[in-house]
C-alpha cells in the first residue's frame, strides 16, 4: 500500500507548484529528508521557492543528480515541467538563480 502524503513544514512561501514538489518529495523520501533536500536545492538555485514551470524543471535536474528515489521524483517532476512548456537546460547555466517565465 502506498503511504499517504504527509504534511511537510514548508521551507518557503506556498504556491501550487511548490506544494506539489514538496508533497512528492515527502511521499517518496519522508517529510524530513524531503524537506532538507528541497531546502538545499532551492538554496543552490538561489530562489526561495518554485514559482514557474522553468523553476520546476531546473529543480528537477538538480534532484535527478541525487540518484535513487530522489532521481525518480526528479524525472517525474521534470516531465510535469516540460508538459507545461519549460525548457530543459544544463544546471551550470542557471547558477545565477535567474527565472524564466
Amino acid at each position: 500500500m502506498l503511504a499517504r502524503p504527509l504534511a511537510v513544514e514548508s521551507v518557503a512561501p506556498t504556491n501550487p507548484l511548490n506544494e506539489t514538489m514538496m508533497s512528492r518529495l515527502a511521499r517518496a523520501l519522508g517529510p524530513q529528508k524531503g524537506n532538507s533536500l528541497a531546502s538545499a536545492i532551492l538554496a543552490t538555485m538561489g530562489i526561495p521557492c518554485l514559482e514557474t514551470p522553468q523553476d520546476l524543471c531546473d529543480f528537477s535536474n538538480h534532484l535527478i543528480g541525487y540518484g535513487g528515489l530522489a532521481e525518480a521524483v526528479g524525472r517525474s517532476l521534470k516531465v510535469m515541467a516540460l508538459l507545461r512548456s519549460a525548457i530543459d537546460r544544463p544546471i551550470a547555466a542557471r547558477k545565477d538563480g535567474t527565472r524564466t517565465a
Binding site: R27, A72, V73, R75, S76, L77, L82
Partner: peptide, 12 residues
C-alpha cells in the same frame, strides 16, 4: 505515457 509519468508520487 508522459502524463502518467508526471503523476508518480502524486494522485494515485
Amino acid at each position: 505515457m508522459e502524463h502518467a509519468r508526471a503523476e508518480l508520487y502524486g494522485d494515485e
